[in-house]
Nucleic acid binder design. Structure first.
Lengths: 338, 338
DNA sequence: AAGAGTTTTGCAACCGGTTGCAAAATAAAA
DNA sequence: TTTTATTTTGCAACCGGTTGCAAAACTCTT
C-alpha cells in the first residue's frame, strides 16, 4: 500500500525501512545491477510502502544522462507542426526521453536558449525547423551538445546530423507534374525568401524548367508560411496577371492563395492549377482536396529519433545526413492526368 | 573569451581559477546573495573564461525547485491545440519555467505519466485538456504535485486549480443566438459524448431551449473532435432528416459537417445555419468564415500561468477555480441579425 | 588605536542519488 | 569439510551544486 506523504521518500528512507544499505536500494532500481532476489524484493516492498520513486535528476548527476532532449522549434503557427509535435513527443517518450520544449520567438535570444538547454543538461537537442537562420543548429554543437536538425538542409559541418527531405528534388517533382499537365506558363509561390526550404524547392523547380525555355516561369514569395501571406500575395498577383498554374511551397499558403483565387471567381483547377507542399492533414479534407507534395513526416521524425538514440547509446559523435524523398498526392487542384 | 572544451566546467573549477571558495562562486550566481563586488567580478571573469554555466539540476537538489513544469495533453490533433501550445510555452518561458511535455496517447498509461513527472521533480503540472477522464488531474494532486487544470471543468476537490471557460454559459449563448435567428428546429452536434466540454455545452444549450418547448431540438454526437467525425455524423444526419441550424461543439467538427452539407448541395447559411466553437485561427480564413463561439485562449493560459507562479512563489497550496466567459464571433455561417 | 557593528568569506555538511573496491556471503569444486 | 571461485553487500567517495554558522575582514565610532 503506497503511502502519500507530502514529502517525497528518499533512497535512504527506503534503505532504512528495508534494512539494507543505500547502495542496495540504488542497485535494486538499476537495470542489470548486482542484487540478490532476496534484497531486491525487500527493497521493492519498502519502496512500495513509502511510495518511493528515484529522483532522476539526482541520478543524472553521476550518470551524466538526464533523459532530457531539447526540442526547439519556431513554427508554432503552421498546422503541419502539430503533427510534427505529436510524432516527436510520442517517439521520444517511447524511447524513454523527455522533450523539453523551446519555443523560439522573435523576442527570445537564440543564444540564451542554447545556454538554457545547457543548464538543464539535455542529452541532446533536436532542432525542428526549416526556417531558422542558417547555422543556428551549429551553436548547439559548438556548445558541446549533440544535435540533430530535423527538416534541415544538409551542411558541410560534419558535427551535425541532418534528417530532412529532399526539397530540391521535390521542386523538380512539382515542375515535372506541371509540365505533364501541359502548362506553358507556370509560377512558383514560395514562403519566406530566406527560408532554406523555400529556396531549395525553388531551385529544383527552376532546375527542371530551365530545360524548357519556351515555358514562361514566374517567381513570387509570400512573406510567411501563413494563410494571409498566401492570400495577399495571390491577390496582388491576380492584379498583375496570372500564370496557368502554381507550385506553392506550403499547403497553408496554397489554401490562402486558392481562397484569393476563388474570391476573384477563378475556378480551380479548370482555370488555375495549384500544387501545394506538405500534405498536412487538412489538405485531404473534403472541402479542400489539395493536390500536394507529401512530406514523409513520420519517417523524418522516426529517423531523427533513431539517430538521437544512436548517438546517446553509442555515445559516439559520429553524425550523418539523410534526405528522404517526397511524392505527389493527387487530389483535385490539378487536372487529372490521363 | 569563453573556451569551449568538451567537458563542461564546474563550480569548483571556476572557484579554483578565481582563487575563491566554492561558496563564493555559488553566491556570485545567486540573485541577492552576499558577495562583494570584488569577488563577484573575479568569479565572473573566471566563469567567462571557462564558459561556465551552473547546473540547474544539481542546484535543484538543494533548492527543491527545478523550474520544470509538466504540460500534459492529449489533443494533439485539433489545430486549436497548436495555439494552446504556442501560448503555454511562451508564457512559461517568460516566467522562467520549462515545459516538460507529456503526450497522453491511448498506449501510455496515465499512472505512469504521473510517476514520470514525479521522477523529474516537476515544480507543478498543468493539465491542458477537456477530454480527459474525469478525475485525471486528481492523481497528480494525490501524488503531491500542484496542479492546474486548464480548460477543465470545476470540481469540488479543493486541491486542484481549474482555469477554464464557462462551457455551460457558452451553450446558452449558442442557443440564444439560434433563437435570435428565428429557427424553430435546431440541433446540437457534440464531440465525444463523455467529454466534459461537450456535455457542458449541451447542458447550457438545452437549458435555454427547455424554455421553448415548441422548438424542436435534436442532439447528436460525433465520436471525436475531428473533421471526419463531423463529416460522417452530418452525412448520416442528412439521410435521417435535418434541423434548420446546428450548434457544433467544435470548429473542426463544424468544418467537417459543413463539408458534408455542401457535398449534399445544401447552402450555408441560407438553408442550414451553423455555429461552431473555439474560434480557431482557421475559422477566420476567407474560405471558411465560420460563425463561432470564441474561447479566450490567451486569457485562460495567462491566468493558468499566473496561478502556477502564484503557487510556486508563495509556495501555498491555496487553490482556486475560475471560468472565463466566451462570446460569439459573427461571420458567414449564420444569417446576419438585422 | 581600540572597540563595536556590519559584511564578506570559507568550512563543512547536506541534497539524493551512483559506483569502485574490498570484505562478506554464498555456491561450486576438490 | 576445506579450498576456491563467484556473487552480493556495504563503505566511502563522488556528482555539482547550496547554505547555516562562525571566523575573518572590513567599516565606522569614539
Amino acid at each position: 500500500m503506497s503511502q502519500h506523504s507530502s514529502k517525497r521518500a528518499t533512497l535512504s528512507e527506503v534503505a532504512a525501512l528495508a534494512g539494507v544499505s543505500r547502495s542496495a536500494v540504488s542497485r535494486a532500481f538499476t537495470e542489470g545491477a548486482s542484487v540478490s532476489v532476496k534484497t531486491r524484493s525487500k527493497v521493492e516492498r519498502a519502496a512500495q510502502e513509502l511510495g518511493y520513486r528515484p529522483n532522476v535528476l539526482a541520478r543524472s548527476l553521476t550518470t551524466r544522462k538526464t533523459g532530457l532532449v531539447g526540442l526547439v522549434a519556431n513554427n508554432f503557427h503552421n498546422p503541419i507542426f502539430l503533427e510534427v509535435f505529436d510524432l516527436f513527443t510520442r517517439q521520444l517518450q517511447t524511447v524513454g526521453l523527455r522533450p523539453l520544449i523551446v519555443n523560439l520567438t522573435e523576442e527570445t535570444d537564440p543564444q540564451r536558449s542554447v545556454q538554457l538547454l545547457l543548464e538543464y543538461q539535455v542529452d541532446a537537442v533536436v532542432v525542428a525547423s526549416s526556417t531558422l537562420p542558417v547555422g543556428f543548429a551549429d551553436s548547439f554543437s559548438e556548445a558541446g551538445i549533440s544535435v540533430v536538425h530535423a527538416f534541415g538542409r544538409p551542411t558541410n559541418r560534419k558535427d551535425i546530423n541532418v534528417i530532412g527531405i529532399d526539397n530540391i528534388e521535390a521542386g523538380r517533382i512539382a515542375a515535372r507534374r506541371l509540365l505533364a499537365s501541359g502548362y506553358n506558363d507556370v509560377g512558383f509561390l514560395g514562403g519566406p525568401e530566406k527560408a532554406t526550404s523555400t529556396r531549395d524547392r525553388l531551385e529544383g523547380f527552376l532546375d527542371v524548367l530551365s530545360d524548357y525555355p519556351k515555358i514562361k516561369t514566374r517567381v513570387h514569395f509570400a512573406g510567411d508560411y501563413t494563410f494571409e501571406a498566401g492570400f495577399d500575395e495571390m491577390a496582388s498577383m491576380i492584379l498583375r496577371g496570372l500564370s496557368q498554374a502554381y507550385f506553392c511551397a506550403d499547403d497553408v499558403i496554397s489554401i490562402g492563395a486558392m481562397s484569393a483565387l476563388r474570391r476573384a471567381n477563378f475556378r480551380i483547377p479548370q482555370q488555375i492549377g495549384i500544387i501545394g507542399f506538405n500534405d498536412m492533414e487538412m489538405a485531404g479534407w473534403d472541402n479542400i482536396r489539395l493536390t500536394t507534395i507529401h512530406q514523409p513526416l513520420d519517417q523524418v521524425i522516426e529517423e531523427s529519433v533513431i539517430c538521437l538514440t544512436g548517438m546517446l547509446t553509442l555515445n559516439t559523435r559520429k553524425t550523418y545526413q539523410k534526405l528522404l524523398p517526397c511524392h505527389i498526392v493527387e487530389r483535385d487542384t490539378l487536372p487529372a492526368l490521363s
